[in-house]
Design a binder for these strands. Structure first.
Lengths: 240, 240
DNA sequence: GCTCCATCTTGAACGCGTTCAACTTATGTC
DNA sequence: GACATAAGTTGAACGCGTTCAAGATGGAGC
C-alpha cells in the first residue's frame, strides 16, 4: 500500500486494499528509516544540497524505494510540519497552564512557536518557497495540510478560551483563525528575518502582541464597533 | 558584457569594461528575441512547462546563449516584474488624476494592480514559489527587486499625497510603505484565489479599503493615539 | 512444501536547468 | 589588410528529481 502523507491519508491513485492504515512491519520500518535519514541530512546540509540519491544511499536503499514511500522530495517535508506542530503544542503547554492574561498567553504561544522553529531556520527558509506555491500540497492552506493547520488553529482557540479577555461577541468566533493567520504572518517575517538569532522576529512579537491585545479590547468600544463589524462581515464574505 | 537584470545592473562576477551599459546592437537584439520568446511561451504553456531548450529552439539560438544573457530561468521573470509595474502605473494614472478621496484612490489603484495581473494569474501562481524564497533575487524584498519595489511604493505615496485624507503626523511618513505591504497582501491573496475571475480578491479590496480608510481616520482620535504610536514605534524598531 | 499475489525493492533511463571549453564573429589599431 | 581582443555563440556534458519495467520477498491458503 502506497502511503501518502504522515497523516496516514491513502493515496487515491493506488487504491488497493481498503485497510490503508494496516502498514506491514517491514514497510513501516523502511519508511521510518528513510524519513529519519532525510531529516538528518536536511538539518546537516540544508534542503537543496540534500539529494534524493544521498538520502537513499545513506539509508541503504535504492532511490526508487524512497519514491515508493514518498511521492516527492517535497513530501518528505510534511513530516517536518507535523513534528513542528506537536512540539509547538508541547512547548506552549506550560504557558497556557500558567497564564490567564490574554496578551501573556498570546505572546507565550507565539514565542514558543519561534522557539521550536529556530533550530531549523536555514532549512525552513530553503524549502519555504515550496510551501508558498498555492498548488503545493505543502501550502499551509492546502487540504493535505489541514491536519496540522486545524491543530494549530486549535492552539489559538485555547489561547482565547483560557484567557480572561473580554471580546466582542461577533468577533470572538473568528478570532482563533485570525490569530493563526497572524501567526502565519510572524512565521513569514521570521523566514525573511536575517537579524542575528532572528531577534527582529522577537521584537515583532513583543511589539505586535500588546497592539493586538488593545485592538481586541477596543473592539467592544462604541467608536470601533462599526469597524469590528466590518472586519467580521469581510471575513464572512471571503469565506463564502 | 554579461548583463544581469532588466534594471541594467552589471554582473559583478564578470567585470570587464567599465561601461556596462554600452550593449552592442547585436547583443541587445538577441537578448530581446530570447526575452520575447520566453514571455510568449510562459503565457502559452505556463512557467513550469516551458523549458529552456524550448525557449532556445523557438528563438533560434543555442541553450547556452540564453544563459549568456540571463543568469537563470528565474531571471527571465524579472522582466515580468518590471513590465507589470509599468503597466500598473499606467492603469492607475486616470484614477489618480480623477479622484481626490483617499478611499477611492486606494481602491482604484489596488483594482488597477489586479487588472494588470489578471491575464497572468496561472503563470503568476506557478512562479510565485520562486519569488517567495527569501534568498531569491526575485523576492519582492530583495535588493535586485528594489527598482520595481521603490516604484510601487511611490505609487502609494501618490495615492496619499494627492488625497484629501487627514492622517496622523507620525503615521503619515510610514503610510506609503504600509499601503504597499497591504498591496503585497492583496497580491498574495490573489495568487491563492481560486474563485472564478478571482472575484474574492475584488471583494477583499472592496471590503478592506473602507476599513483601512476608517483606521487611518481614527488614527488621529484620542483613544487610538496610543495604538497609532505603538504601530509607528514598532515599524521603527523593526526597521532598525 | 507449493503456489499465488500483494508488497516491497531495484537501478537504468528520462527530461530538466545549468555549465563550460571551444569556437565564431565583430570591432578597433597600426 | 593583418592582427588582437572583446563580444557573442555553440552543444555536449553534468547532476538533479523523478519514473517504471522488472525482479525479489514473504505470508496466506491448500
Amino acid at each position: 500500500m502506497r502511503r501518502d502523507t504522515v497523516t496516514g491519508m491513502t493515496d487515491q491513485t493506488v487504491p488497493t486494499t481498503a485497510a490503508g492504515e494496516a502498514a506491514t512491519a517491514r514497510g513501516e520500518q523502511t519508511r521510518q528509516l528513510i524519513l529519519e535519514t532525510a531529516m538528518r541530512l536536511f538539518r546537516e546540509r540544508g534542503y537543496a544540497r540534500t539529494t534524493m540519491r544521498a538520502i537513499a544511499t545513506e539509508a541503504g536503499v535504492a532511490v526508487g524505494n524512497a519514491y515508493y514511500y514518498f511521492q516527492s522530495k517535497e513530501h518528505l517535508i510534511q513530516e517536518f510540519y507535523a513534528r513542528t506542530q506537536t512540539e509547538h503544542r508541547t512547548a506552549a503547554q506550560p504557558v497556557l497552564e500558567r497564564e490567564s492574561d490574554f496578551a501573556a498567553r498570546l505572546a507565550g504561544v507565539l514565542h514558543a512557536g519561534i522557539d521550536v522553529l529556530t533550530p531549523s531556520h536555514e532549512f525552513a527558509a530553503s524549502f519555504f518557497k515550496t510551501a508558498a506555491e498555492p498548488t503545493s500540497p505543502l501550502s499551509p492552506f492546502s487540504a493535505e495540510s489541514s491536519g496540522p493547520r486545524e491543530a494549530s488553529i486549535g492552539l489559538y482557540a485555547d489561547v482565547l478560551a483560557g484567557s480572561t479577555a473580554k471580546v466582542d461577541a461577533e468577533l470572538r468566533p473568528q478570532l482563533p483563525e485570525l490569530l493563526w493567520l497572524a501567526y502565519m504572518g510572524v512565521v513569514l517575517f521570521w523566514v525573511y528575518d536575517r537579524s542575528p538569532g532572528q531577534a527582529r522576529t522577537r521584537q515583532l512579537i513583543d511589539g505586535a502582541v500588546p497592539l493586538v491585545d488593545q485592538l481586541v479590547r477596543l473592539s467592544r468600544l462604541r467608536v470601533l464597533r462599526p469597524v469590528t463589524q466590518q472586519v467580521v462581515s469581510l471575513i464572512h464574505t471571503l469565506r463564502h
